[in-house]
Design a protein around this nucleic acid. Structure first.
Ligand SMILES: [Mn+2]
Ligand SMILES: [Mn+2]
Ligand SMILES: [Zn+2]
Ligand SMILES: [Zn+2]
Lengths: 157, 157
DNA sequence: CAATAAATGAAAATGGTTTTCATTATTAAA
DNA sequence: TTTAATAATGAAAACCATTTTCATTTATTG
């Protein structure tokens, strides 16, 4: 781990960028700031709208490219709710959310984070992961648990 | 063509169709046959190609519509691997697969079914589902567990 | 068979995402 | 600081899975 570079707030991701030979640019900084400021599961278009408010010269293409790159780096988690557009959220970094999973409403597509009961999860996932990777000769690097159903508002309709 | 309700091979889905007032048509029969014959996680285009071989007059639109309808009815499970096209598989019916989850290769997008260790899963999921639905006032109807990683072939490259 | 409405297929539209390419900006070297 | 190399950018176009439209066909019921 390279140290002595990231001083000051918000420098951690710049270190990560330097480590892989990627440049620190204004559009990238804006995108990451936006991800920091929201607690939501945002689409590329969501990010683009906010980025455009901050700096109208930032294009949608760059938003996509930055989100892809951050996903590749493991800084951002990309996932799908079933409405045709990918969602993104900061995860597993100093300023982002910790390991968690989702409740997804099939009605309004709302996403609820949950990170309770992680000890039970650790036990179950750990054991299962071990057995599966052995049995199927498969290197497991990540997992996702999603519960589907209906939120309070959508339960009536 | 017309069979008595609940009698004969392949009639189970026709009953389900009748029950919701949907008609039993040739294209729908072809699509369901194709889903039966494969053990794969197929895309709409995959199904279309096979359907077209059997009956060239069947259109892609109808394949989409049938897959949607079957998903709606819970006969088919639709899900996303991250390559931009939805996948479908028969599930939870007399001729389909039983409850299971997936190992997804981030390299080649291969999907491995697993249904082992269901007793451990039942315990963990059941407990967690109970606690979550109470805490978030959320009616849970389904869940998905996915492990991501790399299959044997993709581990080298 | 006739009446009726559901289902179908071809073509066009949609919409999220990716590609292309000329221009700009970052970075390390001089 | 200037410069050279090249990574990054944005606008527009392309892409492509999925959906919509609509005229036609077909399953179903009596
Ligand atoms: Mn989340
Ligand atoms: Mn499966
Ligand atoms: Zn809802
Ligand atoms: Zn693979």
């Amino acid at each position: 781990m390279v140290r002595g570079r990231g001083h000051g707030r918000g420098a951690w991701w710049q270190d990560r960028f330097h480590d892989i030979g990627a440049r620190v640019t204004a559009p990238r900084e804006v995108v990451i700031d936006i991800l920091h400021e929201t607690n939501d599961h945002v689409s590329a278009a969501d990010v683009y709208v906010k980025a455009h408010e901050i700096n109208p010269s930032i294009g949608l293409t760059t938003v996509y490219r930055t989100l892809d790159m951050l996903t590749q780096m493991g800084i951002v988690q990309k996932f799908d709710v079933g409405d045709g557009k990918a969602r993104y959220e900061l995860v597993n970094n100093p300023d982002g959310k910790k390991h968690h999973h989702h409740l997804i409403c099939l009605g309004c597509k709302a996403i609820i984070d949950y990170s309770e009961f992680l000890d039970d999860e650790l036990e179950y996932i750990g054991k299962t992961q071990n057995r599966l990777s052995k049995k199927y000769n498969f290197t497991i690097t990540d997992h996702a648990i999603s519960f589907y159903g209906f939120c309070e508002r959508c339960r009536s309709g």
